[in-house]
């Protein structure tokens, strides 16, 4: 069996206990995805599977045979940053940077969810178009903790990318 990670095929054969997170970091040498709590509470391990953001620590690699995974390494390069990466740099959306890959993967998926008009807990109206106010962004990013507390700059970075995309 194999997973398609950032467009490239990686064979998986091993202990079924291997989480997707450990497979990425240990077996694929894709260490951009971070292990924080390893229990789905901090969001540092957020990656996209078939376009949707998930906690890679709470799923087994063996369950994703044939599926498409995007990690931070698949979003941009040092010479060609993803717009979210550039905006995080510009707005200082981090201090230590450990949560940043998860924040950026999460933000990418969040912008798509909002474009599909998925509501959130703070949406006043369940129908109609989603408007990503700062309150909406904070609620939708609540699965990504930043122990340094760079939250306000993270919101600013996301707002900039969102406004440019509109």
């Amino acid at each position: 069996m194999a997973l398609i990670i950032n467009g490239r095929e990686y064979a998986f054969e091993g202990d079924p206990r291997t989480t997707l997170l450990d497979f990425l970091r240990r077996d694929c040498d894709l260490t951009g995805t971070k292990k924080g709590c390893d229990h789905g509470q901090c969001g540092a391990c957020t990656v996209l599977v078939n376009g949707q953001r998930i906690n890679s620590c709470l799923t087994l690699a063996v369950m994703h045979d044939g599926e498409s995974v995007t990690t931070i390494e698949g979003l941009g390069t040092i010479d060609d940053l993803h717009p979210l990466q550039a905006a995080f740099v510009k707005h200082d959306g981090y201090q230590c940077g450990y949560c940043t890959p998860g924040q950026i993967c999460s933000a990418k998926a969040m912008l798509e969810e909002a474009a599909n008009n998925w509501p959130s807990f703070v949406s006043e109206n369940l129908s109609g178009e989603t408007r990503l106010t700062p309150d909406e962004i904070r609620e939708r990013m609540s699965g990504n903790l930043c122990r340094c507390g760079a939250y306000s700059n993270i919101v600013d970075a996301i707002v900039e990318v969102m406004e440019r995309e509109q």
């Binding site: 969001g43 957020t46 953001r53 906690n55 709470l58 999460s106 959130s120 807990f121 949406s123 699965g143």
Partner: peptide
């Protein structure tokens, strides 16, 4: 549903 967990968890 939206009151529980996070988008990442609800996606799984």
């Amino acid at each position: 549903i939206l009151a529980g967990a996070t988008f990442q968890l609800r996606n799984k």
